[in-house]
Amino acid sequence: MKISDVIKILNGKLVAGGESDREVGAIVANDLMSDVLLTDSDDILLLTSLASDQAVRTANIVGAAAVVVHNAKPLPATMCQVADTLGIPLISSPLAKFDACVKLYLAREAEGKGE
């Protein structure tokens, strides 16, 4: 699953960070940044309701492929600037976190990689 696929599946919009054709690894849905920092996987897709600079900075520390903020939550201008600076694709999705997780899981399952 590539970032472009994630955008389609979540009916999302790339808001900042630049386009990327990177493959997405594990999917992590979490609002607690200390938990995210403990993730061992590479190229994670971070789903969060935390619309702040720290979500993007945390994603960069763990080498995340992209950050998705759900519920079409307004994204602060500074968050977009940090995403652009660090080159982390920042995606806004109108879906609720649970619905986004289900859609991604089903898409993964269809790919034969459900996890």
Partner: peptide
Amino acid sequence: LANAGKAANEIKRMLKEAGVNSKIVR
């Protein structure tokens, strides 16, 4: 908090540039 995390991100960049193993960098 607006600037918190900048130093850690810069440290990560510096270590990667210095060729440190990526697992240790993380």
